[in-house]
Nucleic acid binder design. Structure first.
Lengths: 213, 213
DNA sequence: TGCATCTTTGCATACCATGCAACTTATGTC
DNA sequence: GACATAAGTTGCATGGTATGCAAAGATGCA
């Protein structure tokens, strides 16, 4: 079943620091090996050896081999959730989401090389790409709840989750980010990523009108 | 690698009819067994035995065990693509997509019981749900291309796929459908599915404004 | 230091997934 | 209808994936 994720933020204990380090080492080993040899040719044994742990320990951190390629940053969801909750009150829900996601993407640029490799790996095998897309869903559910909180103020999300509007907003924003990344990685020379990102959200806010051209 | 899907429509040859029957039998066996015992407890051997074929044959039809739970109707994508292309010219792209998807969902109601079980199974194990969402991506890419064709009239989609707008539209519409189904299955008694579906597309067309209430 | 807790590891086991060769079943032709 | 061919199914062998369990090794805390 995997180990619990303990604290999302930077905890102080030696144990938790070691655990984060091990997880990061496994993740990085998986991505680098996959970028070099192709994801299908990378065995769990190779990943574990590169990260300096046993195969059994690999499965203490990831539920499946593919998870090591797909799950990049486990705390990203929590950070976006907080960003949505802390956004200025005069931002529309859509704009709050846009800003939270933009901040997260900017953060991702810090690990530039690794993220680039990661994108390459996912794009190279559709199987993993699909898995990656699906993996965002949990984060989207979190975001939907954050939006619901933002809208209603109170903490009682009721028995059966956020309403239709927050769910839709989170799902659509997720789709928007994926579309931006896809399109940008196919037209990297023509436009900066942030331009694509903002054009996408502008289209959303306008109700996706048919292009005039 | 899986067998090729031959023709999407109803072909006449005995071979192809048998193949579709076998695929359907495997798919149905997988879903029913999973609904009864939980997806994790269903082995490929059990699915194959229920469908009356060997384990080896199972893997001739599906690339992995999970695919049998996830891939319900392999031709749905092709049908929606055609529906988008054949839609009346005065419909906006968003409306054309909405109608294509509504038609497909109405079709799904024919197999009501099986689709219901399918939804249950996916919902019961997040792992499969994520996989299911990812599986829609190929269909979305197809839809994006159809929209691009619809907008530009010509057949030359260029070297690097549809533009930003068609991609975004397809991705957002996919997110809208998933959201509708999620929300509806959580509030089944309160509203008819089609009402939820239309409310979602109305919100999209309005640019996802913050709710006034 | 010494004890409680958590983590890693090896081992055993079962299932998943693919290549290959032999066998069976459709299709089209004579 | 019988034949040659192409297509699909099956069993076997093989290797990777994934989990439970118990022993050994770290860490946290009094």
């Amino acid at each position: 079943m995997q180990l619990m994720s303990e604290k999302g933020a930077a905890g102080g204990g030696l144990r938790e620091r070691k655990k984060r380090a091990t997880r990061a080492a496994l993740s990085e080993a998986a991505v680098r090996l996959a970028a070099e040899h192709g994801a299908e040719k990378v065995t769990v044994e190779a990943i574990s050896a590169t990260a300096g742990v046993s195969v059994r320990t690999f499965f203490n951190y990831f539920d499946s081999r593919d998870d090591a390629f797909v799950v990049i940053d486990a705390d990203a969801g929590a950070r976006m959730r907080r960003a949505v909750l802390d956004a200025p009150a005069d931002l529309s829900p859509l704009a709050a989401l846009r800003e939270a996601m933009a901040a997260e993407l900017a953060e991702a640029e810090q690990q530039h090389e690794l993220w680039r490799l990661h994108a390459e790996v996912l794009h190279a095998s559709p199987h993993l790409l699909a898995r990656g897309v699906g993996a965002h869903m949990a984060a989207e559910a979190d975001l939907a709840e954050a939006i619901a909180l933002r809208l209603r103020g109170d903490g009682g999300t009721g028995g059966d989750g956020p309403g239709l509007y927050p769910r839709l907003l989170a799902a659509v924003a997720g789709a928007a980010v994926r579309t931006s990344m896809d399109h940008w990685s196919a037209h990297q020379e023509e436009a900066a990523f942030l331009d694509v990102f903002h054009e996408v959200f502008t289209l959303l806010a306008a109700g996706l009108p048919a292009p005039s051209a």
